[in-house]
Structure formats: C-alpha cells, structure tokens
C-alpha cells in the first residue's frame, strides 16, 4: 500500500502536486479572506469553460505522437479567419457563431493537413519547429490583417487601414454560449451553455479516439515501429491527429472569443499554446498520453489558479501583478518538468 502511494506520487509529479495544492489553498483562501467568493468562483468557472476546447486540441496531437501542440496558433488563426468572414458578412447570433465555425473549417483542414505533412518530415524535432512555425505564421498574419479587404466598417481600424486589434463582439455573438442557459445556484453562475458545448466536443473526441482510427492513432503515437509492423500507416495517422487538433483549435478560439467578448487579432494568440499545453500537462498528461480527463482536470486547476490567485494576492500583497507571474512560473515549470521526464525515459 505504501509502495503504491509512493508510486502514485511519483507518477503524479512534484510540480503537479504543488500546483494542485496551490489551487486548493487559494480556493480555500478566497472565502477565508472574505473576498467575493461567489463572483470569483463564477469567474473561474467561466474561464474553465472558455479555455476547455483550446486545451482539448492537445488530445489528438499528443496521442498521435506529434508532441505537445505548440503550433496551436495555426488553428487559432484559422478560427480567427472564420470569425472574420462571418462578421464581415454581418452574421449575428447563433448564425454568426456557427457560420464562423463553418467558415473556419476549410482553412483549418487545409492548414492542419499541410502542417501535418511538415511534422512528418521533421520527426523528432516537432516541438521546437511547431513553436517557431506558429510564431512565424502569427507574424506573417499580422501583415495580412493589415491588408485584408473588409466591407464591414466596424471591423476596420479607426485610423488608416487594416483590421482592428480587438474587435468587440457585442454586436455579433458575444456570450452566445455563456448566456444560452446560465444556471445560478445561490449567486454562483455557471455558464452551462459553454460547458455543454465543451462536453459535446469532448464526447466527439472520445468517440473518435475509440473508433478504429483512434485506436490505431494511439498505437502509432506510442510506438511507431510497432504500428508500422502491424500495418498501420503511421504518417497518415499523424496527419489525422494534427488536422483534428488544428480544427479543434479553430473552434476553441471561437468559443474563447464568445466568452471573452472580444476577438483578438495580431500578436495576441502568440503565447496561447503555452497555457493550453501547461493545462493538459497539469491534468496529468505526458508527452504521448493525454485523455479527456486530463483536459478537464487540467483546465480546472490551471484556470482556477489564474483566476483566483490575483484577488488573493492583492489582499496579501497589494498592487502586485502576481497573476501573470504565477501563470509564467507554473505553466513553464510544468512544461520543463514534462520535457525532463520525457527525455529521461529514453
């Protein structure tokens, strides 16, 4: 029993334990410090729901063996394009939201496929290349945003040309899922719509991972040599996984945007992948294994910490900007831990 406990802790990892402990500590600190507990908890729940799909993108790509998806920005860009097209057509409400998803699909499918092709050629260095390809695409898109033809004047920058940095979604589909059927339990607001959408996505991914393709993808990711010997086309499986991840990334940013109320173009998606990667790792994923549970648990702990640490810290250390610092240390710490562990196994 003792052995088992120890093994469990080793598996779970020190960094992860610290993070979960930290989360519990601040979650308890909120009511203890007489902060506005219900509002803060509601905020935390909203952030969990809105980030969920972005974190879910990690499941197929990590399972198929292409490592943590540091090129999440590619999927995000596709989502932004979809959203832009739908807003440019002035589509609002549910039509607008689902049109955005629909318009993003062709982009994310093609980009995901191309990105998959690239990743198949650079096996072994996926993560670094993904990061910088992501960065490069973002900076290239910055120029594109400047020149993209826009009919809808709301989207245009007030001065000069090009798209606004942040587009307010109030007139389009802000909170379309959040406000779908919010449940309020004694002051605690749960954005049930967004949660339902997240669970729907998780369920679809679950189904996919338990189909034949999903199983073979898992085998291909875990042991490419074995997969090849068993007649599985490893490269094709990787392309499937990467494309699926890109498509989810596009949907993920749209879910994020509707909750956030803004659509952020230009350089803002640059660091989003790190938070998503950190969340899934916190949830217990490792380089080649990631499950729906890891996603839900991870996003809960990670976003919980980010949302709740700020007000708590402000009581303890007034005027400090601790939330960002906590995000940096925890997210990068957990990634470093995963890298160290991943290489150690070899």
């Amino acid at each position: 029993m003792k052995m088992k406990c120890r093994q469990f802790f080793e598996e779970f990892g020190v960094t992860r334990m610290i993070a979960v402990g930290f989360f519990l500590a601040i979650a308890i600190a909120v009511p203890v410090l007489h902060l506005n507990t219900l509002t803060l908890y509601s905020q935390a729940l909203t952030r969990m729901a809105m980030n969920g799909v972005l974190v879910l993108t990690m499941v197929p790509i990590m399972v198929c063996g292409a490592g943590m998806n540091f090129a999440l920005p590619i999927g995000i860009i596709c989502g932004l394009i979809g959203g832009l097209i739908s807003m440019n057509m002035n589509l609002q409400g549910f039509t607008g939201f689902f049109a955005s998803i629909l318009f993003s699909l062709p982009f994310s499918l093609v980009m995901g496929y191309l990105y998959g092709l690239l990743m198949n050629r650079v096996k072994g260095s996926e993560m670094m290349i993904a990061t910088y390809v992501g960065f490069a695409v973002i900076s290239a898109m910055c120029i594109v945003w400047l020149f993209v033809p826009i009919d809808n004047l709301v989207l245009r920058m007030q001065m000069g040309r090009g798209l606004r940095k942040d587009v307010v979604l109030t007139d389009f589909w802000a909170g379309i899922l959040d406000d779908l059927c919010p449940v309020t339990i004694g002051g605690l607001t749960i954005p049930l719509g967004t949660f339902l959408f997240l669970f729907l996505m998780c369920f679809l991914v679950y189904l996919y991972m338990h189909s034949k393709t999903g199983i073979m993808m898992r085998a291909a990711g875990q042991n490419p040599g074995l997969a090849a010997a068993n007649g599985i086309n490893v490269d094709r499986m990787r392309i499937w996984g990467i494309t699926l991840s890109t498509v989810l990334g596009a949907i993920g940013i749209l879910v994020y945007a509707q909750s956030y109320g803004f659509m952020q173009f230009y350089e803002s998606p640059k660091m989003m992948s790190f938070s998503a990667v950190a969340a899934v790792l916190l949830g217990g994923a490792s380089n080649k294994r990631a499950s729906i549970f890891n996603v839900i648990f991870g996003v809960m702990v990670f976003q919980g910490i980010l949302t709740l640490s700020m007000p708590v810290a402000n009581v303890l250390l007034p005027e400090s900007n601790i939330s960002d610092i906590v995000r940096m240390i925890i997210s990068n710490g957990i990634i470093l831990y995963a890298l160290g562990k991943g290489s150690g196994k070899k």
Partner: peptide, 18 residues
C-alpha cells in the same frame, strides 16, 4: 533533457522570466 535543448532553453527562458 538531452536532445531537446532548444525547446528547453526557450521554456527555461520564460520560466526564468517568471
């Protein structure tokens, strides 16, 4: 993290920043 020095360096930079 032998063999993954570049990504490690990058993340270590962010971590150090924190």
């Amino acid at each position: 993290t032998r063999g993954q020095e570049m990504i490690t360096g990058m993340i270590a930079g962010y971590f150090g920043n924190g």
